[in-house]
């Protein structure tokens, strides 16, 4: 019984510490917000899927971050793409193009890019465009959900992340699109 009581006290203490810790975490307002937009929510199968990523500094101080791109994909963001079943969508693997003479060419595994470091002033935003279909296989018609995140800072060991809204798009069969046209 004493053991039970001790355990109960310890448990309550632990819960209290956890709650206090959570509250302390909640008390820290987010310094960045991420917002996703898509020009059109219904996209024909095989078309590029372009999204706009808006990163806003909601703090009172400038925040210095890295920005860049590889090909047409905005760098420094992590992309979470899921199909209508909630399963992660496979990434695009090696890509080839066949020449008329029958020979095959492989595109580079990583597309060329560059990056730079810069500050977002308080209240200001930086908007990046990203062609997510260059990264993920939207290989069948259906509903897909895209969510983007990035670390709150680019320093080593950073664990906090900021998440965007979940963006839902619909990939329609190419023939349906033709009929609609």
């Amino acid at each position: 019984m004493k053991r039970l009581a001790k355990g109960l006290v310890f448990g309550l203490l632990a819960i209290s510490v956890t709650v206090i810790g959570l509250k302390a975490q909640e008390a820290t307002p987010p310094r960045l917000t991420l917002t996703l937009k898509v020009p059109k929510s219904e996209i024909k199968l095989g078309e590029n899927i372009d999204i706009t990523i808006k990163l806003t500094n909601t703090s009172q101080e400038p925040i210095t971050l890295l920005f860049g791109n590889h090909g047409n994909v905005a760098s420094f963001y992590q992309y979470d793409v899921r199909n209508e079943n909630g399963d992660s969508v496979a990434e695009v693997g090696p890509r080839f193009q066949q020449l008329p003479n029958g020979q095959m060419l492989q595109l580079p595994t990583r597309l060329p890019g560059s990056f730079t470091q810069g500050a977002i002033d308080p209240g200001k935003s930086v908007t990046s465009n990203s062609t997510v279909s260059d990264l993920y296989r939207f290989d069948h018609p259906g509903k897909y959900t895209i969510r983007v995140s990035r670390y709150a800072s680019d320093t080593a060991g950073e664990t906090k992340k900021v998440y965007s809204n979940a963006l839902e798009i619909t990939v329609i069969p190419a023939e349906n699109a033709n009929k609609q046209q």
Partner: peptide
Amino acid sequence: DGIYPYPSTSGTTSDSPNVPLD
């Protein structure tokens, strides 16, 4: 190229174009 205004730190900006190799 990228975003505008081109963000900079301490009044300096840089570029280092690269090519991934396979």
